[in-house]
Design a protein around this nucleic acid. Structure first.
Lengths: 172, 172
DNA sequence: GGGAAACATTTTAGGCTTAAAACAATTCGG
DNA sequence: CCGAATTGTTTTAAGCCTAAAATGTTTCCC
């Protein structure tokens, strides 16, 4: 179907003579589909977390980061890992400390740094939520074969690398 | 590498005797990678829209929906398409009407319904932004071959269908 | 040592987002 | 025709999120 336009494109890129505005409709569609998938799944997970555990997705995500770091993390670490702004983490942590899920203390070696950890309560609650969360994810992806999953992992790794490279090009 | 656990799993599912908590770590990793890709690209697009055009991503997204609907859309339509809540759209539209990009009027046949359209200004600005936006997306996905793109499209379509089915199972 | 640069965090101002309740208009079934 | 459901939108309350500026601390290096 796109044979004709492919030929034209090839001619352009071979001759390097004509500066045709290139067609990137496919990439655009891919991006929209990627976004749709993520939004769909995210919304589903958000709703289930709220209904089952009365917890928000950002809180859950933050606790997930801390569960992987028994010795705690600094706010900057969390901010980088979650790919959200610093200010965002400040508020999120504030509320989780308030509710007794997090412990926050100033580093003894560097008084700029705040180290946060899950409290006993926080860890217990997170583990309970995480195990159920894992089954939700499995169910959401249930129609994918193991091969599909592997292939998606591979292509998304490639996508991530490509996007990071592009981002670095702009912000060296 | 996972040969042993695979065997155990197979035994379980064959004998149907032991109720082992199944391992869904692969799907979980897939979900996290999907989320990372989307967050990465979304952040990049958000930043470029702000820097180049001083516009927010949600505003751009809303205008993109309307650009595809010359006869306008109702707020509900927009809300479904953008997969955001109704109340969200109300505020977004308010600000875009205020800035002269949107026109909003009550339907003549059903006075519950608000129909919104791009104004001339709104359409012109959107087109200008959209053409640049398309080159950003192309650049972000630049390392993917056409075959990669096709394959990703296929797998994400399958993912979307799977997730929708799962969501429908919960909310019949 | 002392200032400049770098770093970690918080604050600020504004916008986005959601779920749920409230309100308004239409449609449906008897 | 009329009350009950349904549908479309707005409001409300709370939380999330960002970019940029401000604050406090450390490091670098002359």
């Amino acid at each position: 179907m796109p044979a004709v336009s492919d030929c034209i494109e090839m001619l352009d890129s071979e001759t390097k003579a004509v500066e045709t505005p290139e067609d990137h409709a496919e990439e655009l569609r891919l991006w929209l589909r990627l976004l749709t998938c993520t939004t769909l799944i995210e919304g589903e997970v958000r709703g289930r977390l709220r209904q089952r555990f009365d917890v928000t997705l950002p809180r859950f995500d933050l606790m997930a980061q801390l569960d992987k770091a028994p010795d705690g993390m600094t706010l900057s670490d969390v901010s980088k890992r979650m790919m959200v702004s610093n200010g965002n983490v400040t508020g999120l942590v504030e509320r989780l400390v308030e509710s007794g899920h997090l412990d926050r203390r100033t580093s003894e070696t560097d008084r700029r740094v705040q180290v946060i950890r899950l409290t006993k309560l926080g860890r217990a609650e997170f583990r309970r939520m995480a195990s159920e969360h894992e089954t939700w994810i499995a169910d959401l992806f249930a129609d994918l074969t193991p091969k599909d999953v592997r292939e998606l992992m591979r292509l998304l790794a490639k996508t991530k690398a490509s996007a990071q490279k592009s981002a670095a090009r702009r912000r060296p």
